[in-house]
Write a protein that binds this DNA or RNA. Structure first.
Lengths: 220, 220
DNA sequence: GTCTATACAAAGATAGAC
DNA sequence: GTCTATCTTTGTATAGAC
């Protein structure tokens, strides 16, 4: 395999650049990272970057495509047909908030970074909008399948359920990122279950006993 | 009042710079906006900016303080003691998602911009964390007061309720921004009510009749 | 396809006049 | 306190060698 070098070096370069970009864009933000910094982190040069992607913007676009697949895997792992979907919610929550396991920490940051570009750039807007729609769709579909299999009735249409679950997860993760104690996993899981009518709102308190619960505000 | 100029010009400059910064940071992002652009938009020069705030970073810090108050007002308008808090939820939602009424559109963008700095910068982190904690606190307190006054029992501690409501609002607003149809107001209001146990999960469908509800995915 | 070197533009920051 | 002018650094992008 002495010949592999030439044919494959280019795809490896693409991968290296995209990975480096994901890391840096998430950690510092798109505008705060120079093309050179990305190239350096990927052990390449700006020349290679421009040759492949035409610039930083093009790199972000390429990154989006790759990222899409990883995220769908991350969030929509088959919701098994257990009577209680709580473990599945917990898994999704952990996938989003995990410190660095499989770049869990960076996931939220990059996702928000992409959202921003979508909200600001007319080119990215529809792309990101579609991305979110797909996530909602997959999420909702999974829930609908589960409901049908277990004989439960969801109080929302699949897409609506997807939107609410995704919304709650994102919004809670944002807060969790700055103040983990303020948004414990049990709270989120319980809320999601309640939201979808999978338990009575008042009944069955969060999995872990709701001890005391004195306000945990940081008061520095 | 010929003398007002000297004493007050400086505070007017501060205000102008902060307002301009809020507008531009929200619309383009902190790193995408130059100090000069902010100064120009405020009809001042970079010299004045540096003299007052020491730089762009300092300006962001100052902006945060001002923004704090406006947001608390925006989100925690007294929750009146009606039996149904839905109108109040609807008002909060509109405050967050309103196109440009009172800079409603920019609100979410700037809020996310601040969150990012908090998540990335060790100096901003605690400040933004505190900010969110305060919003949660106010929100939760308002809900608790309402519950007590109306004889309702909230299934969560005040801070927990605040975290969930804020989370759902934020996460839904993020999606709404890219695809308004996917997250209609009635859905969010209904979800919030359900979440807090103010109606049975399955019962009382959203205010507006849930017509058809064919998936509204953009399929460009 | 990738690197080195570099042109060119923009941004951050400051000194000194008013 | 504010402006004009400018210095320095950093970033984008390209041309040409390998």
């Amino acid at each position: 395999m002495a010949r592999r070098t030439q044919e494959q070096r280019k795809t490896e370069t693409r991968t290296r650049l995209i990975d480096a970009a994901a890391e840096l864009f998430a950690r510092k933000g798109f505008h705060a990272v120079s093309a050179e910094a990305v190239a350096d982190a990927a052990d390449r040069t700006t020349g290679a970057l421009y040759s492949h992607f035409g610039g930083k913007e093009g790199l972000l676009l390429a990154l989006l495509e790759v990222w899409k697949q990883r995220t769908v895997e991350r969030l929509t792992a088959e919701i098994h047909q257990l009577p209680d979907p709580a473990p599945h919610f917990a898994a999704m929550w952990e996938a989003i908030t995990a410190p660095a396991e499989d770049r869990g920490e960076a996931w939220l940051l990059l996702e928000i970074e992409l959202w921003q570009h979508g909200a600001r750039d007319p080119v990215f807007g529809p792309l990101i909008a579609r991305r979110f729609a797909e996530i909602r769709g997959q999420l909702g579909e999974g829930l609908a399948d589960w409901a049908e299999a277990t004989g439960t009735e969801l109080p929302y249409a699949p897409d609506e359920a997807g939107a609410l679950v995704l919304g709650a997860l994102l919004g809670c993760a944002l807060q969790h990122r700055l103040d983990p104690d303020a948004v414990p996993e049990e709270l989120v899981v319980h809320a999601l279950s309640t939201l979808l009518g999978l338990r009575t709102p008042g009944g069955s308190p969060p999995a872990s006993p709701r001890t005391e619960q004195t306000p945990k505000e940081a008061r520095p």
